[in-house]
Structure formats: structure tokens, C-alpha cells
Design a protein around this nucleic acid. Sequence first.
DNA 1: CGCCTGCTTGACCTCGCTCAAGGCCCGTGG
DNA 2: CCACGGGCCTTGAGCGAGGTCAAGCAGGCG
Lengths: 248, 248
Amino acid sequence: MPVVHPLVSKLSQYIKLTDKETSAANAVPVRLARIAADQDVVRAGDRTSRSLLVVNGLLATSKVDENGERQIVALHVAEDFPDLLTLHLELMDSDLRTITGSDVAFIEHAPLRILTSEHPLLAAALWRTTLIDAAVMREWVVNVGRRAALPRVAHLFSEMFARMAAVGLSEGHSCSLPLTQMQLGEATGLSVVHVNRVLKDLRSQGFLSFERGLLTIHDMAALHSLAGFERDYLHQDHHADPLKQVRG
Amino acid sequence: MPVVHPLVSKLSQYIKLTDKETSAANAVPVRLARIAADQDVVRAGDRTSRSLLVVNGLLATSKVDENGERQIVALHVAEDFPDLLTLHLELMDSDLRTITGSDVAFIEHAPLRILTSEHPLLAAALWRTTLIDAAVMREWVVNVGRRAALPRVAHLFSEMFARMAAVGLSEGHSCSLPLTQMQLGEATGLSVVHVNRVLKDLRSQGFLSFERGLLTIHDMAALHSLAGFERDYLHQDHHADPLKQVRG
DNA sequence: CGCCTGCTTGACCTCGCTCAAGGCCCGTGG
DNA sequence: CCACGGGCCTTGAGCGAGGTCAAGCAGGCG
């Protein structure tokens, strides 16, 4: 059981909450749950009356194409709100599934709707989350659409490390990233075999190591340059954010 | 000069406005402008204090990778709100440029913030727009990540036709889609040469014709099946939408 | 008229896919 | 205790989809 309400913790990423807002958010009921690895949480076509906040673990949003091939379109780590979109979109259009065993906080839409309609700034903060998710996805389109295999995988690693670091889940130049090579392929649009070769390459050229779910980046600058990684699209600088400015 | 306020028209896509909401939205000042073809409207890294609504024309959001290759990550037609994200995201992370000469309505953020904080349902409707944009982008990740060239281009055409039709811009099985083969390549992650060959193929197999900016689909079912196109992700069925249900 | 942009086609090449086999690790059951 | 099986990783060999390079053509515009 986390000390602080997961929703409060999420909202605090973006804005300094007033006491009133804090207590309103604290009043939103959450149900904490542990979900095992490789489970569907929501499936494309589902209607749902709740969303979940990731407390810890790793989840993926993916879609299956007409040939049954799965494409991961987003990865979710702690503090992410992967299916918040169902608050305003009736039908889920993709699958949300756990990659590792994960702790999540389920939040019903009804109280969330009340909260957001009574507290516009909280609505804006949550809206902002979904906009950042979209920003990340834009970069993914570029990644799979333009980059060759080596920079493509390098980019995914760069991004995931930056995102993990931003929520305090990195240690030095390492972070946990328990993806199989199969899943790396699903996220990058590459075959497992080729992912394996790319990893070998990245390893042997001294960029990083990636074993048993642990990513260690040996030369961050070189990796970023290989990947063409520019962190701006992650919008991690919340102090520059319009929401903050409302209150100085 | 459109008869109805562009913002009202946009909001009405999603919810039935009350009189109060209508007049509040009508009170938001807009500046109508004509932008010539191939102009940057906003560039990655820009800060901006307004967003634009497309009245008519065709625009694209794109990013340039480390090798200077451009990837189009979204196309925008009438009724779209391409850079609404700048309402809550300080820095633009991609370029927004016109493809054809376009009529747009500029709306300042400040009055929009007031409107959304006073009318939560209008905020939700605008939030919803950005969520649909994200849903389309998820499908684009699948498109460039998984599909072979032929279905990939077929999918783009299927989507664009469906979206144009949804805003009344199709005539029978035709719609205007003034993209060069270069731009088709930028949107699909294919080379111009290959786009040209794919088009030849789609044409000769009787799926469609595409000349001088006019797309005509001869066999819709066959095209959709080739493309693996399932319209659900476009979330066009606004009657099923949670926002509508608030008011029955 | 001449240029520039966009379309078209051919020839060649290469990156990444497929197919196939083998190895490692770990959990399960005899 | 060992045998077996199933994930997952690894590597080789061959192939093909799509890229690159190059050239020619058509139409619109200064």
C-alpha cells in the first residue's frame, strides 16, 4: 500500500496541488491490485468504466494486425496512466497487457469525471498526460518509419532509460527493462532474429549491455547520437509547463 | 467567412451544446486566415500561445530525423485541431505545415483556457479530440511497423477516405487528397520510387485510382481487406460516446 | 523557351526476413 | 537424482522486399 494516493502522486508530477485539490483527489477511491505477467488488462473492443494507474511494473499497449502480428505501440512504466483514454473514448482500440507482474491502481471513471469537472486544473493535468503519451507515440512513428534497425533499437533503449530515470527507477547507468527479444521486436517492427543481431552489435560496439532484463548504458552520449535521440519530445521539463505557470 | 463559429462546429461533433455553452464558445475570438501551400505553421521547438482549427485544406504534422528525412506522423483535414496540444504542452515537438493552401481559424489559448475551465464538458470534448488523434497515431505505428508496402499505402488511403467522408468531403467513392508521391512516402515510410510502384499496382489491380490529387476507390471492400482496415480506431461513432451519455 | 517539380521505369544492391538448427536455463515429473 | 520439455537466446544460410541510383518524360510557370 503506497503511502501517498497514486492519483495525487500522478497529479503532483505536473502541478502543485492546493489543499482543496489534494483532498478532492485523495477522496477518489482507488483499488490497488497486483496483476501477473502476460495478462490482458483491457482488450481492443472492450468498454470499460475504469482506468488504471501504474504503480510499478511494465505494461504494453499493442495492436494485432490482419496477419496476427502484434505491434507494441506504447510501453508503460510507473506513474503512467495507460488507458486514461477510456475516460472519453467509449471503445478501447488496442490491447493493454502486462509484461511483468505489475501493481496497478484502478480508478473508476465516475468519480474521476466529477473530480475533473470540479477542478479544471486537475483535468488539465490529466489531459496533459495523454498529450505526452501522444508525443511519445509521434516519435515512435518516426522510429519505426525512418530509422534503420540499429538506431531504432538504440532509440527505444534511450527513451526507456530516460523515462525510467525520470521516475527514479534507474541506478547509475542501469535500469530494469524486462523485455524479451520477441517483445523488443514487437515494439520496433523488427524480427526476433534481427533484434538479436542488433543487440549483439550494440553490445560488441560497447554502447550498452542488456541481459536478463537489465539495461546498462555504457556510453550514453554515443548511444543518443547513434539513435538520434533528443529528449524534448518526452516533455519532462514540467517547470516550463503552462499548467505551472497558471500559479507561477 | 463560415456561417457558424468554427469552434462551435468542432464541439458540436461530439456533444449537443447547451445554449449557455454555445454562447460561451461563440464568444471565443477566432482569427480566420488563409495559409499558402507548403508553409510551416508551427515548428518543432516553438512556443505558441494559440492553436488552429482547420476550416479547410490539408496539413501535416511531421518530424525530421537525424538524417534529415521527414516522417509525416499525422494528416489533418477540415474540423481537425492539429496543434491543440500546445494548450497544455509548452514546446511543440514536431512541425505543422500546410500541404495545400488552407483556411484555418486561430484561437488564442487564454480564452480557450477560460472556456474549458468554466465548461468541463467542453473541455472533455476537446480532450476527446486529442485522444482520437492519438488513436489514429497508434494505428499509424502499426501501419509503418508491420504492414508491407501495398497494404500500407492501401491503409492510408482507406483511412483518409473514411475521415474525409466523415466530414462530408467525399463524393461517391472519390475524395480530394492532394498528396504528392513524395509526401505519400513520407507518411508511409517508403521511398518515392516504391510508392510509385505500389500505386501502379493498386491502380492496375483495380483497387483505386489516384491522379492529380483525386483519390477514387473502385472496390472499397477489397481495399479495406487488403489494408486490414477496421474503422473502429477512428472513433467516429460519437453517439456511443461517454460525453453524449452524460446528457442522454 | 527553358526550368523545375513530380511521375515513371529500369538495373542493381542490401538490409532485414525466413527457415532451420542448436544451446542454455529452469521448472516439472518420473 | 536425472530426463524431458518449453521458453528464450543465438547463429548460419539463403532470399526477397524495398532502397538507391540513374535516366527520361510530362506538364506548369516565369
